[in-house]
């Protein structure tokens, strides 16, 4: 009974292909507005979740301020399209690059901190970002009205399809592809070394500061891309979308997903987006449920919920075959 062992590269390729197929199928078969929107939201936030998985799961840096970068991405897109008249695609590029630059600039000083200090510092930054979003009305429109009436995405004029879904799906595939490449490269290994011990990482010749800053900037870039797509999706939004709760939900996606593989981010994003709609009275108990899940997962499933379940299923399957 031979185990069919694919090289990790082949597995990645297969995974990406499968994801592409799934996305295509979803696009073609799910027609109801409500469900399409859920799927789209899951795709959009999965992008940010992948970034956070790399930052938190792989490199071990706790960031509670990702909402800031999503906000920057969203407002960048809104402003570029409305005030500068930029085409959505280059605007999206700005959504991705601007947070990356800000993230890199912030990261150098901030990543000298670790553990609780880093968490609190990023929380403070995230909270500040929300305040800026609500107060800096000239750029963000504040809480009321915010950014209003962005045009529906029409990259290919005349095509009567949901182009945003395709765009978001392509972005997700690109992000996954890049991240998979990263994980199985010297950079990915360096992140895991840093997570274990910065001293040991440095002792292996890894430039710890630079690597941490780079991954922080990357996570910021992905969050910004999510923000830009979110802006295209919502077309009207205000600061309330970018409160600390967003950072918490992104954190939940990673914890519910996996701390050791980026595929977990997809599962996590889907679950967190769907959860409110699966449980009645969820809104009221949302924080408690999040807190409870986080506490339990950290205590009993330190690899992330989906990861642990997947490993369990794996063991079950292998057990079956052995019979």
């Amino acid at each position: 009974m031979a185990r069919f062992m694919l090289t990790s590269q082949a597995r990645d390729a297969v995974g990406l292909l499968a994801l592409a197929v799934v996305l295509l199928v979803v696009d073609l078969t799910i027609t109801g507005h409500f469900h399409r929107n859920l799927a789209l939201q899951a795709i959009i936030f999965a992008i940010a979740a992948v970034g956070l998985t790399l930052l938190l799961g792989f490199a071990g840096q706790v960031s509670l301020g990702q909402n800031a970068f999503v906000a920057i991405g969203a407002y960048a897109l809104g402003n570029m399209v409305q005030k500068v008249g930029l085409h959505p695609l280059p605007a999206l590029a700005v959504s991705t690059l601007l947070p990356a630059i800000v993230g890199y600039a912030v990261s150098r000083p901030i990543l000298r901190l670790s553990g609780h200090y880093l968490a609190l510092a990023t929380l403070a930054l995230g909270a500040s970002a929300y305040i800026f979003a609500s107060q800096w009305t000239s750029v963000t429109g504040g809480l009321d009205p915010g950014i209003v009436d962005l045009p529906k995405l029409a990259l290919v004029p005349g095509l009567e399809r949901d182009q945003l879904f395709t765009l978001a799906a392509l972005c997700l595939l690109a992000v996954m592809g890049f991240s998979l490449l990263l994980v199985h490269s010297p950079v990915g290994r360096a992140l895991q070394a840093i997570c274990t011990s910065e001293t040991v990482a440095a002792g292996a010749g890894i430039r710890v500061d630079r690597t941490k800053a780079a991954i922080f900037a990357l996570a910021a870039a992905f969050a910004g891309l999510s923000g830009g797509l979110y802006a295209l999706f919502m077309r009207s939004f205000n600061a309330t979308s970018f409160s600390i709760l967003l950072s918490i939900e992104l954190l939940m996606m990673v914890i519910v997903g996996s701390l050791s593989t980026i595929w977990g981010a997809l599962v996590g994003a889907l679950l967190v987006v769907l959860l409110p709609h699966m449980l009645e009275h969820f809104e009221a108990a949302k924080l408690f449920i999040y807190g409870a899940i986080m506490t339990l997962v950290v205590m009993f499933m330190p690899n992330g919920l989906a990861s642990t379940l997947f490993a369990g299923v794996n063991r079950l399957l292998r057990g079956d075959r052995a019979r």
Binding site: V187, A190, T196, S260
Partner: peptide
Amino acid sequence: IKGLTALENVTVGADLFGSFTMADL
């Protein structure tokens, strides 16, 4: 280094020579 196999652990040491960075990615 957690999460890595024995060989991967050693590769981290060997990666020194490649000087492969995020920019290269």
